[in-house]
Nucleic acid binder design. Structure first.
Lengths: 254, 254
DNA sequence: AGGTAACGCCGCACGTCGTACGATAACGGC
DNA sequence: GCCGTTATCGTACGACGTGCGGCGTTACCT
């Protein structure tokens, strides 16, 4: 129910795992698994049941191996999550449409990330400061920066623009994914939830006291019944963000 | 280490707690605690040690009470988190500076939320779809909407603008807070972390392959050594977002 | 004043988790 | 064939949320 998650692995061990620096065993029984296989199983589990269901025991079960065997390949769960992260970073496209301008490129970056988070919602719960310096993460960072390369921005500004996009997408995808998962997480559909909350709220909530919230809340509630609407809200915000960046780039090159 | 968190309480029970609908006991021993006291203790604990340290046992210890006593006041941990959330929502200011325009008001909303998240970083880990419909949350929503009331936007657009701001702030504060907490979480300062990662990365990472990431990464790394820089990055993004909203409002009223 | 129903408090127990430890067995190189 | 290395995994510990049931306190009713 509660918690941190990390990418808090020992950076030395994580990097060794990520870049394949482990020196290949010579003696002893043949390994039945690989870090790769374990990461794949863990990702499947997390995709299907969420990060809270990701336990070493469950991963081991999936691989038909005893729990403690995993620790031969991976120093702890934290490093396993690092490996999972870098692996899914490898899924995003790494080419832009021919002849696209910076705006189209940035929009692609945003949408690729939107898609990635939707495929792997558990990423939202993993704390990511001190990025996992794996090959895929670096490639992704480089690719995203290329969206705004050569537009007259300073290095730091390029980083800030990409951060802005990432931050927005992260926030937007978070609410969208939570909306999608709300039913399965709570066992209550939106309708059922409102059936319970609505009448109770009516008893205690005075619309006259908060008229704007009442009005807008009703409008938003109605609109979001329509399927796919989080996506429209995402697109709306993205347009604003891109407009803001456009104004900045124009000012910068003037 | 891993997990979901929720605001996944039974909505009926949460609402009763939030609005004080519990019908006041008559018989039996005098209660030694109150939901309020429990929430305060839980918030203190979560502020100090993070959401992963928030356990019923630890909260009970803090109140010098047996663990199971808490369940007299609160049906489960999920509802407790709902109460904690609504309580901290009450902390944000609820008045705008006299005569401020929508842009100044929106900026205040963003900064108030930035501050709130910094005071209570555990909020970042709580899943918030299906908002906790408590009095403070509703008041906050109403207040934030007032920032863009009367600017010619449709109800739905007002909601989208506030969502955009919230999403951006959420994302930005997340990276800033994680940066601040990285040292205490991992026991490694940024310098120590880099001392370990740097040399290892140099062995495997080819700057020629990802020249932009190398260049910008170096520039950003240097800049972020300066304390308080996440705040500047936040301000940068916020300006862009507000510019984007400005363009929208102008187009809308034209 | 005494009885009783309602209620707060809490010890115990179950099944979950990550993972430390040490025994055992499989294998490569000599 | 032997030995050192390494993979596998059973057991155990201390954390977690919380269901259950007993105990003791209190307020109302008679």
């Amino acid at each position: 129910m509660t918690a941190d998650s990390s990418s808090a692995g020992d950076p030395r061990r994580s990097l060794e795992l990520l870049w394949g620096l482990v020196p290949a065993r010579r003696r002893g029984p043949r390994p039945r698994l690989s870090v790769e296989e374990i990461a794949v199983a863990a990702i499947e589990l997390a995709d299907a049941e969420g990060l809270s269901a990701l336990s070493m025991r469950r991963v081991a079960d999936r691989l038909k191996v005893a729990t403690m065997s995993l620790y031969t390949y991976v120093p702890s769960k934290a490093e396993l999550i690092d490996v999972m992260l870098d692996r899914v970073y490898g899924e995003t496209p790494k080419t832009y449409a021919e002849g696209a301008g910076w705006r189209a490129r940035l929009e692609q970056v945003a949408r690729d990330n939107w898609d990635l988070y939707h495929r792997h919602p558990w990423m939202l719960q993993v704390v990511m400061h001190r990025p996992v310096l794996g090959p895929n993460m670096i490639a992704k960072f480089d690719f995203e920066l290329r969206a705004v390369e050569g537009e007259g921005l300073a290095d730091l500004e390029m980083d800030q623009v990409i951060s802005l996009i990432s931050n927005y997408v992260h926030g937007a995808v978070r609410s969208a994914v939570e909306a999608m998962q709300a039913e399965s997480r709570t066992g209550l559909s939106d309708a059922q939830w409102w059936e319970i909350s609505g009448p109770l709220l009516e008893k205690v909530f005075d619309p006259a006291q908060f008229p704007i919230a009442a009005r807008v809340g009703a409008a938003a509630g109605e609109a979001y019944e329509a399927v796919g609407d989080p996506e429209r809200a995402f697109a709306f915000g993205l347009e604003r963000v891109l407009d803001g960046i456009e104004a900045f780039i124009e000012k910068r090159s003037a």
